[in-house]
Simulated scan of single mutants.
Amino acid sequence: MARARIDDGAGRAAVRAALAAVAAGNSASRDIRAQAVRYTLQLLAEQAEGNTLEVRVPPFGAVQCVAGPRHTRGTPPNVIETDAATWLALATGALPWADGLASGAIHASGSRATLIGHVPVLPLP
């Protein structure tokens, strides 16, 4: 059974609240961070349909995305994993892919483990 889709209004509000908390030097509530991460992962999966790459943002969610060879069993060959703050920065355009990768905040394994051309999913001014 598929997960319920997060409403765009609620998702955008969660992303803005999470980013505002970070900008103020605080951390948003776990519920706000979870909704913001899940919403932006949902956008990624919709914008980059496929099953070649698994993007993980523990403990909040993971999606398979990007067109190409389908992964069906065992450990996925192409995986990207990062924390919630880094993911939200990537998803909104505040952090370029190359900078996140170079800093070690993003862990990418596999020949197709890149989000170049797929992030940001929700550019914010």
Rank of each mutant, 00 (worst) to 15 (best):
G9L: 07
Q35L: 13
T92M: 02
A18Q: 10
Q35K: 15
G11M: 08
G9A: 11
P69A: 15
A13K: 15
G104M: 06
A10L: 12
N78V: 05
G117H: 06
G61V: 03
T72G: 00
A14F: 08
G68V: 13
A13V: 10
R12M: 10
S109W: 03
T92P: 02
P120F: 15
P76Q: 10
R38V: 04
G11N: 05
A18P: 07
V57W: 01
W97N: 10
A113T: 08
P96V: 03
T75Y: 08
A98R: 11
A89F: 00
Q35C: 11
G110E: 11
A113E: 04
F60M: 00
G9I: 06
S111N: 02
L43T: 02
V79P: 05
V66C: 15
W87S: 09
A89E: 05
P96S: 06
C65Q: 09
V121P: 09
S109C: 04
D83Q: 11
T75V: 14
V37E: 01
A98H: 12
A62R: 15
R112L: 12
S111V: 03
D31P: 07
A85L: 11
V79G: 01
R56F: 01
A13F: 10
S29I: 01
D7R: 03
R16W: 11
N78F: 04
R33W: 03
G74A: 03
P59F: 10
L43G: 06
A113C: 01
V79N: 09
R30S: 14
R56N: 06
I116K: 13
G68A: 10
A94H: 06
A4D: 03
D8I: 13
E81Y: 00
P125A: 14
E54L: 09
W97R: 05
S111H: 05
A14Y: 05
A20V: 04
A21T: 00
E54C: 01
P123E: 05
L122T: 00
A84G: 09
G117K: 08
V22K: 10
Y39E: 01
A91E: 04
